[in-house]
Structure formats: C-alpha cells, structure tokens
C-alpha cells in the first residue's frame, strides 16, 4: 500500500523533499522525477534525430534517415486531411512535436518501476505538465490566429454586434475551456490508468495486470492522438477565413 500511496501522492507534496533533486538558484524551480524523465525523453528523441539527419542524402542512405523521413511524411499525411495540405505543412513542427512528446511521456509510465523509483515518472500523469502543454497550445492558437487574420480573428466573438454581450463572454470562456479540457482529459486518463494498473497489481498480482497494461498501451497512444488532433482542429479554425 505504500507503493500506491507514493504513486497517488504524485511524488510531489506527499513524498516531499525526497523527490527534488536540486533547485535552480534564484528561479525557485525544482528538478523533480518528472523533469528528469522529460529530459531523458527529449535527449533520446533529439539524439536519434541528430544521428538520423546528420548527413541527409537525396536518396536515403541510412535506415535512420528512411525512418525519420517516414515519420515526418507520415505525420504530414496524417494531419493533411484534418487541417488541409497547407496547414499540415505549416503546423507540422508543432503538432508533430506534441504528438511525439506526449506519446513517449505516456509510455514512459509503462516502464517497470515508473512512478516509484527516483527519477522516473510519467510526465503526463502530472496535471502541471499537461497544463503546461495546453498552455503552449493556447498561445500557439491565439498567435497563429492573430498573425494570419489580425483583428478579424476576434470577429466571431462579436459577429452580429447586437449579440456580442452574449457571444463575447462565451467566446472568451470557450478559448480557456479548450486548454483546460485538453490538459485534464490527458492527465485524468494517464493518471487513472496508472492507478488502475497499480491497484490491480496489488489486488491480484498474477497474470491479470497484463490486461490493463495492454490497455494503457492503447490508451497512451489514443490520448496522444486526441490531444494533437484537437490542437490541429483548433489551429486550423483559428487561421481559417470565414466564408
């Protein structure tokens, strides 16, 4: 039960000082297990990309290059029908990075010992992390909309002007509900899944936890997909000219 309680407390306030590796002087930022896991994910992905794209040939020379090309082109082909060819090209770096980041963060929670050994904890099982990602999405959507359409971006909030007392607050609330929902949906799924696996592991320690583990494998992918899918829709509606 200690294991579970540690997992439930999120290794944060509950576990207290034990999870903080060090503080950044002056900034008050603490490096926790979640931060180190994030760094590890970033490092792995970036090193792979660096190795794969070190000497790109017009005809793929290495397996790594072929794989990276497949990934980038696959992501583009995946987003194209949702947001259109042009938007898929423009938003690919953001959407692709989000997808890779969330997917690996979700899956890091499936590694043995994740959540109860120091330095390894699924980043997306913490609401702060998903809220941070959602904040990035929020600012990207606003930035893209305003950059592409200027003040017309806000038109839908005041369109029939006589309805604007109603539309304006609704529009503003909606803009904030979106990232809120994005972050909470992701964290609730990953965190909930983690707890289910742990609870089953302790209640019925035999073969049964295989089932929720396999479930987590599916759900982790689906959640990364949903997060980026909705981000793609928000971005494309923000830059779309009204007809």
């Amino acid at each position: 039960m200690d294991l579970l309680r540690l997992a439930v407390s999120g290794g944060g306030e509950g576990a207290g000082k034990s999870d903080v590796f060090f503080r950044l002087p002056g900034l008050g930022l603490e490096v926790t297990s979640i931060v180190t896991t994030t760094w590890a994910i970033m490092a792995i992905v970036l090193v792979l990309c660096w190795l794969g794209t070190r000497n790109l040939g017009r005809v793929p020379r290495t397996r790594g290059q072929a794989l990276l090309e497949l990934a980038v082109d696959g992501l583009r082909a995946f987003f194209a029908p949702i947001v259109g060819e042009e938007n898929a090209r423009r938003f690919l770096p953001l959407l692709g990075s989000l997808f890779i980041f969330i997917l690996l963060a979700n899956y890091s929670g499936l590694l043995p010992g994740a959540g109860h050994i120091r330095g390894l904890k699924a980043p997306t099982s913490n609401w702060g992390v998903t809220a941070g990602l959602a904040a990035v999405v929020f600012f990207s959507v606003q930035y893209s909309g305003i950059r592409k359409r200027g003040l017309r971006y806000f038109k839908h909030m005041v369109d029939p002007w006589y309805l604007s007392p109603l539309l304006l607050p609704l529009g503003v609330i909606e803009e904030f509900v979106r990232p809120f929902a994005l972050s909470l949906r992701l964290v609730a799924n990953i965190f909930g899944g983690e707890i289910v696996v742990l609870a089953l592991l302790m209640a019925i320690p035999w073969f049964l936890p295989i089932v929720p583990l396999a479930l987590e494998l599916i759900f982790g992918g689906i959640q990364a997909f949903i997060f980026t899918f909705l981000t793609a829709i928000y971005l494309s509606t923000a830059v779309a000219e009204e007809h």
């Binding site: 039960m1 579970l4 309680r5 439930v8 909930g192 707890i195 289910v196 742990l198 609870a199 089953l200 302790m202 209640a203 929720p212 479930l215 759900f219």
Partner: peptide, 15 residues
C-alpha cells in the same frame, strides 16, 4: 475499463 476505474478508486480509498 470503466469498471476497472471504479475498482481502482475503491482500492485506493480503502488504503
């Protein structure tokens, strides 16, 4: 999975 979530919450709260 829905039932499993209830299972998990019962388990956690029981602790």
């Amino acid at each position: 999975a829905l039932t499993l979530f209830v299972f998990a919450i019962v388990f956690v709260l029981a602790g």
